[in-house]
């Protein structure tokens, strides 16, 4: 079903990102700024795709150490262990906390990976000006945005543990280098999703219709 609609961009209009005032853009190729609040006007987020890509690629790079390096180091009188995310999940599963293992697995491994893949998909389709399943891609974007913050679960746990369990020589919990990388992955994908302009999903449709 192809609906008929006019976009503000087509009309040469643009709403201010800061105060919401709709302004007419100058006819030439130059950019304008909001006549009310003075913030720069963009009919689409500027460099959205490239920024998204940049952050996403950074996310991808850091995803590797995030999963390979230990995220948490627990030391007690009896033993000393380093856990990566996956080994932690396995440890939890083996010690009988299957539910928690599942939650951690979903929040810390599935979600970031899902976000990375979803954003990659969105960016590629947008770049290719694909009109493929626009609606589903829009939904996917919303899911990505919503789910983003939940991946910080692991980081919260590690942060809490490290702060609480600091009984010197008896038991210590410290965040490993993996925690930083993992946090960075989560933050980078969140920013990547933020920079992504979902309107770009729909633009190819508009062009197609105009043609």
């Amino acid at each position: 079903m192809k609906e008929q609609w006019t976009t503000a961009a087509e009309q040469g209009l643009c709403s201010c990102n800061a105060c919401g005032l709709v302004s007419r853009l100058p006819q030439d190729d130059s950019t304008g700024c909001c006549s009310r609040c003075g913030s720069p006007l963009h009919s689409r987020k500027p460099d959205s795709v490239s920024r998204s890509w940049a952050l996403l690629i950074a996310g991808y790079i850091l995803y590797i150490p995030a999963n390979l390096l230990p995220i948490m180091e627990t030391g007690s009188l009896f033993k000393h262990r380093k856990d990566t995310i996956m080994s932690g999940v396995i440890h939890l599963w083996e010690t009988g906390f299957e539910e928690i293992a599942l939650i951690v697995f979903v929040a810390s491994i599935m979600v970031p990976l899902f976000k990375l893949i979803a954003l990659t998909l969105l960016l590629i389709t947008v770049q290719r000006r694909s009109t493929w399943r626009t609606m589903q891609r829009a939904k996917l974007y919303r899911v990505v945005e919503f789910v983003g913050r939940w991946s910080m679960l692991d980081i919260f746990v590690v942060g809490l543990m490290a702060a609480l369990v600091q009984i010197r020589s008896l038991a210590t919990v410290t965040a490993g280098p993996g925690a930083i990388a993992f946090g960075a992955v989560v933050v980078l994908t969140m920013f990547s999703a933020m920079y992504f302009d979902p309107r770009l999903i729909w633009d190819p449709l508009q062009k197609e219709r105009n043609v």
Binding site: L21, S23, P26, C33, S35, D47
Partner: peptide, 15 residues
């Protein structure tokens, strides 16, 4: 609809 104020385009070669 008010016309947006003019602002010269700033071009960054490398974002």
């Amino acid at each position: 609809i008010p016309e947006a104020a003019f602002q010269p385009r700033r071009r960054r070669r490398l974002q």
